[in-house]
């Protein structure tokens, strides 16, 4: 996220090898765009315009094309996010089981303030998302790559403590 980091190429060494493995799965380079963006996001924490340009270059497409794709998929971060990126499902089936309370609890416990904003200490970004596909385990919450189920506002302080 620092300026320096942004100037270092993402696809070198191991990451480049990983890219080549991915490229081998598809008949053309463009098709590797989604997995390549996943790598870029893992390495950088988010996908900046510069990152898009780099991804575009390695895949032989234009940066504008990459940007069109990045902005389509909600899981690619177009801005830096906190160390812990918390996605709380608030679609109808979770809503009736109290998902909005879970969001509120997370916002209060982490000091992130508003949904989508990052807390002052840079540790937390809480977002409301549409259906996470675990409606029977309401409320499902994704903390980074950890999928938590049956989260209630009461359980939030413990979760926050664990990831802090």
């Amino acid at each position: 996220m620092t300026v320096l980091e942004d100037y270092l190429p993402i696809f070198t060494g191991k990451t480049l090898e990983e890219l080549h493995t991915i490229l081998a799965r598809y008949p053309n380079k463009q098709a590797a765009l989604l997995p390549t963006l996943w790598i870029a996001q893992r390495e950088r924490g988010w996908i900046s315009d510069r990152t898009m340009a780099e991804v575009a270059e390695v895949l032989g497409v234009t940066p504008a094309y990459v940007k069109g794709v990045v902005t389509f998929y909600t899981m690619y971060h177009q801005h830096p996010v906190g160390k812990n990126f918390v996605q709380v499902c608030t679609t109808s089936p979770c809503n009736i089981r109290g998902a909005e309370g879970v969001v509120k609890a997370f916002l209060e416990q982490t000091g992130a303030g508003d949904a989508g904003a990052t807390s002052q200490d840079g540790k937390w970004t809480i977002v409301e998302v549409e259906c996470l596909g675990a409606c029977g385990f309401a409320t499902p919450v994704l903390v980074n790559d950890d999928f938590l189920e049956n989260v209630t506002p009461e359980k939030v302080p413990e979760i926050v403590k664990k990831y802090r």
Partner: peptide
């Protein structure tokens, strides 16, 4: 055959976009 324009975002937030470096 020089795709410098795109559709950015989706739903009613969509607009015609261009990469800032393009």
């Amino acid at each position: 055959q020089e795709p410098v324009l795109n559709v950015s975002e989706r739903g009613d937030r969509a607009f015609i976009g261009i990469h800032p470096e393009a």
